[in-house]
Design a binder for these strands. Structure first.
Lengths: 346, 346
DNA sequence: TTGTACGCGTTATCAG
DNA sequence: CTGATAACGCGTACAA
């Protein structure tokens, strides 16, 4: 007889408990919580008191079932282990909070299969919308999302003819600009330590951008000048060492992100090289790390926080059917720091 | 007429839709999903097919309501902006996943009031248990948790007589050991750049540990030798500069974590000081950053990932009423690196 | 092995 | 302004 326990002080209190205590119906309590204005001042106070006494918190499942809404958005990010996403996601959370929405975070470990699994989990939790990183994923994922009519936005990437809503910047153009700068400084033998490009459009677009800039200058990114590595300090270091093992050595090494660049920097020091005198090194993203290392890293500044906030707003707009904000594409800019200089060095 | 739409291909399919399509009852479908062994092979296949066709995902709210269980744990961490928590939480997630549980993450920004709010949110989402960082928080929070009978564990902290379940290490002892090492190297004027100790027992315990070691050696941590700072590169740099402004300067600066230490390192370079010749600097946590900077940071190694995994197991044990694992307290150890040397330097 | 029927906590409709 | 009451999707006794 479940209904029989009238005073179980320990269990989670329900709407009905509150109603009983306040001497009103459950409907009134519900209204008090959702539309306070539609309840008489005095009743409202009585209910508020009962809520406080009992420490009542609405049951999320019940609410979701009845209202078919969760005020929750989901995000699947490659990893939390990177300041980029950590910072951007924090901004997403803050922006959503202003609209009384919550963010559920899952990570995929850069694996599209795992990502699909996490998306399914989030959907079964009834998220009102989804925030995904980048554009590269199986078509089946997109089909499912569209069939289900789940609002979603793609972040950290942007191109004019992307068929989906995306909020971010043009990775290719940014990388091209950086490479052009390096070329303009006199470098002719340029190498790249890229992130793993498989199912990662940010990584592959950055490679493409570098390649374009080189070719526009009559140079090329030979196969022995391009190494892919997971985004880790150690990976960056190992890749740098591999690049130096050849007969000739590049005078500039462009890295797919700041973490790789910091690893390369460390490896350079280990090999007794002076940066930038012997070799220039650049990063990408402009996380704190870029300024913490010595020499400080020349890199590409990306407005992670503003992007995250904009993505959140776009997602809410999609959900509410209101017009999309127009600040979906962001500009990056090159940050000149110690690790990059002209070649040959003075 | 909600029930009237028999073939709404777009909306979210329900158990009933699946049942209809497979020509069985909803109970059978439910069993297929939860106890496959109790269903005949052939029926199971038909149901599986229907599930696949419809792209069915169980409705979380409905399930939570019916089973009063969510297979979800909640965690409130101070910030995602720190590799410590990012890494530890990732381990928590992985460990929970092996038990088919999910983790909901919220952040408090080091604010106990915000933390209480986030806890309420997580509870209303029906989490089966809670993972909290450190021990310092209002008594009211603990009272509520206990009254509600919510299983919870405290992580990143540990002391023998903690009244709650905690998984971590003795911050005070670790800091004491590090300070003792510094003293043994000959340093006599030692300063500390601590994290903000207000409502942060890890930060204050680390200060206490340093103080104890100094006093045991007949030294003291004068008020002008202790600065609190938020955990940021910039804060560490500013604090270091402040420490150097006095008439005399400390020969060793112990920092509350690696980020502060990296900031101090940068400030030292800015002031034209050589580390460790002019001043030694130490960190705490041993995150990647400690090895990325130059000189590399002497620090205290903390097994974040193992701690996270252990915390997850403890939480599951609490929920299931099984005996707690006994690997709740972890040992740290000092990592000697370039930034720390004897005094006076050779 | 399978089906029927009820209840979980909430919202929303409708009547008072 | 307030109260009854019918959904919402799922799990699970219980019956068949």
């Amino acid at each position: 007889m479940p209904k029989a326990s009238p005073h179980s002080a320990s269990a989670r209190p329900s709407l009905e408990d509150v109603a009983r205590r306040a001497g009103v119906s459950t409907a009134t309590v519900s209204r008090c919580l959702n539309f306070p204005s539609r309840v008489r001042e005095e009743t409202r106070a009585r209910v508020a008191q009962a809520v406080a006494d009992l420490g009542y918190t609405p049951h999320f499942g019940g609410r979701a079932l009845a209202s078919n809404r969760t005020d929750t958005m989901g995000a699947v990010i490659p990893t939390m282990d990177n300041a980029i996403f950590a910072r951007g996601i924090q901004a997403v959370q803050e922006e959503l909070a202003t609209a009384n929405a919550t963010l559920l975070i899952a990570s995929s470990g850069y694996d599209p299969v795992q990502e699909a699994r996490e998306i399914a989990v989030l959907l079964s939790r009834g998220v009102d919308g989804l925030l995904l990183i980048g554009e590269a994923r199986p078509a089946s994922t997109y089909e499912m999302l569209i069939k289900r009519q789940v609002p979603f936005v793609l972040v950290w990437t942007w191109r004019a003819d992307c068929p989906h809503v995306c909020v971010g910047f043009d990775n290719r153009a940014a990388a091209r600009a950086l490479a052009s700068r390096v070329i303009a400084l006199g470098h002719r033998d340029i190498a790249m330590i890229a992130g793993v490009t498989d199912w990662n459009d940010r990584a592959s677009e950055r490679v493409a951008g570098v390649r374009e800039a080189l070719e526009a200058a009559g140079l090329a990114l030979g196969p022995d000048r391009l190494i892919e590595s997971e985004y880790s300090l150690h990976g960056g270091a190992a890749a740098f060492e591999a690049l130096r093992r050849g007969a000739s050595a590049p005078t500039a090494v462009l890295c797919g992100n700041d973490v790789l660049a910091a690893g390369a920097l460390r490896a350079a020091r280990g090999l007794g090289l002076s940066v930038p005198r012997d070799v220039s090194i650049t990063g990408f993203d402009n996380i704190d790390l870029a300024e913490a290392v010595h020499p400080s890293l020349a890199t590409v500044h990306v407005p992670h926080r503003r992007m995250g906030a904009a993505a959140a707003r776009a997602l809410l707009a999609l959900r509410d059917g209101t017009p999309l904000p127009d600040d979906l594409s962001f500009r990056t800019h090159i940050i000149s720091r110690e690790s990059l200089s002209e070649w040959p060095a003075l």
